[in-house]
Design a protein around this nucleic acid. Structure first.
Lengths: 334, 334
DNA sequence: AGTGATTCTGCAACCGGTTGCACTATCGTT
DNA sequence: AACGATAGTGCAACCGGTTGCAGAATCACT
């Protein structure tokens, strides 16, 4: 069984060289260093190449240059609605730089994340780790080896894209104040989430004049949100800000079950703006710009490939006001 | 600037060969074909290799074997909720076979899809094309070159995973009949979608005893669903089946706007079961098992890598009854 | 001891690109 | 006319593995 049989019958520079009556070197240079050749030669070779449908073999290129033209993005759960827009815009940005994208889904496990990274490392030029579960130590170890961009993880010295909730959160608090709410609940996300930590801080620092009840919901999910409603009611809050939109949607469902109508009896603000327009009523939410983050991460990584200077990009957020926030009224149901 | 400087200072088989006092071939065989060597040699070489921290260079291996250990999955839009579970389970299955996964997002464009495929082709062993927009001709051309598995596209002779809606659709029709509905609407998806074609057929063939109004909504989206409500009302239907859950959610919103309450005044069934549990009220939907499809596609492709025998897997669907379907009543609102 | 079969290992070519170096025109100068 | 500079191209080695083929070593058996 010859290997040639298994191999795709791709067009190689040799074929083009023969067809164009030049050497293989010239074909190679026509693509990688056109300045070295006469413009006519470049045009000619490229014309022949495209006529033959030539596509460079990355593996071969990688072998001699050490550059692979691939990057990897690792997420804890692609099914979480925050990540698809991020991955999508990242892949789009990578495409314009002619980089192909590996996707790794760690299933929220640090161990699987480490395995994925090890598996991909030998064939990528860099990593984008979105909300990594990995220990700081391992991340730093990896970052020492090759370009790494973090999303929503704040490690000094490592390039990262941080979605700064403070703008949107502050707006949310202001809005709720203006609407007359005096006691609000924060449905907190995972303790080890940088986003959650930041949101807590913003809340406690901007909430002068109103009381904030922090309610832990554990792993953020629809069910967790729904089940947190009894605690919300117990807290006496007239409004809540939830860690993310999925939790918010659960809360909406839980409130409905109890006959508490939104926004007349209760106001709710989500975060991330992933589902916002799709809930009933449409959810007021802090936009997170996952797509923007994806683009930013890709650009940062691409830049990093040439110039290894650490940088940090923060993305501002704002409040998108929809139909789940209204002036406080005397509660009809309790 | 020498390429060596850019390259990671990896240990190569040459280093091991020198350290172990054997030839490079022997080192290679110690890993790829240990049966050919004496057990002692294998042990010795491997010991030296691990002492030196050897990690095989995929690019080099790929170059000579034509096997990359990579596959690619191409989707029209990763942000469409149908795909993340599919990609997720596919990547998980691939991981167990030690395959890394490239993700391509074609942004619903046949042209970008073709480009992505061409870009990835030289470094993958096979493709999973989910709901490809590509022409049959190009798909067949690609499939002639390398293993290709299609998801929700039915091309004779090419391995494919088809989510067979007929089971779930039939159940849905039966349910609506039983609940007393006599006139139902089908909110149809894109004409070129295999799933849509299949669903239309099932509907018209099983719908004896009731009238089906087909309403075209164009590109399936929340807005399209919401805006189709006037047509639904005009049709006089008391229940509707929508092309997918996103459309359904739009319909729910549109119905709410008109004060038509679900399910007391109107029954609604979605398809794909992607959002089902998250709507208010919770949507009755035809489960599509996107995750199952992902796993099936991965397994099919893995199998295909060894044994190029075309096969077709169909995935059965069933109806998940939730809170948007109820017995028909006299309509309060019109 | 001689012979053939079998097992183990090495040589060298190859995968498809890239690149240092050398060579050949071509051109401008004096 | 002679000569150095320069631009354009080709040769050949190399990246790090894999593998067909052949030779060496070992073994079984007459």
């Amino acid at each position: 069984m010859s290997p040639r049989l298994q191999r795709a019958p791709g067009v190689t520079i040799g074929d083009i060289a023969a067809a164009a009556q030049v050497s293989r070197s010239t074909v190679s240079r026509a693509f990688t260093r056109p300045q070295l050749l006469s413009p006519e030669t470049v045009d000619h070779v490229r014309a022949v190449a495209s006529r033959l449908g030539y596509v460079g073999n990355q593996a071969a290129r990688a072998l001699s240059t050490g550059r692979f033209g691939n990057i990897a993005v690792v997420v804890p759960d692609i099914a979480n609605p925050f990540f698809p827009p991020l991955v999508r815009s990242l892949q789009s940005a990578a495409e314009t730089a002619d980089l192909a994208v590996f996707l790794g889904d760690s299933d929220e496990s640090a161990e699987r994340e480490a395995k994925l990274i090890a598996r991909l490392a030998p064939q990528v030029e860099g990593f984008v780790l979105a909300s990594p579960r990995l220990s700081e130590e391992l991340i730093r170890e990896l970052a020492a080896t090759r370009p790494v961009v973090l999303v929503n993880r704040d490690l000094e010295g490592i390039p990262r894209v941080l979605i700064d909730s403070s703008g949107g959160m502050t707006e949310a608090v202001m809005l709720l104040k203006k609407l007359g709410h005096q006691r609000i609940a924060y449905l907190a996300g995972p303790r080890d989430s940088w986003s959650d930590q930041q949101r807590r801080e913003v809340l406690t620092s901007t909430a002068s004049g109103l009381t904030v009840e922090v309610i832990e919901v554990g792993r953020p999910s629809y069910a967790a949100g729904r089940d947190s409603v009894s605690a919300i009611v117990r807290s006496g809050a007239t409004a809540a800000i939830a860690f993310d939109d999925v939790v918010s949607q659960g809360v909406l469902a839980g409130l409905e079950l109890r006959g508490i109508s939104v926004p007349s009896d209760f106001s709710l603000v989500g975060c991330d703006d992933t589902l916002a327009a799709l809930t009933t009523p449409a959810l007021t939410s802090v936009s997170a710009g996952a797509a923007t983050a994806g683009t930013a991460a890709a650009k940062l990584l691409i830049q990093l490939l040439d110039d290894p200077t650490a940088e940090c990009v923060t993305i501002a957020t704002h409040l998108v006001i929809r139909a789940t926030t209204a002036a406080v009224t005397s509660r009809v149901t309790r």
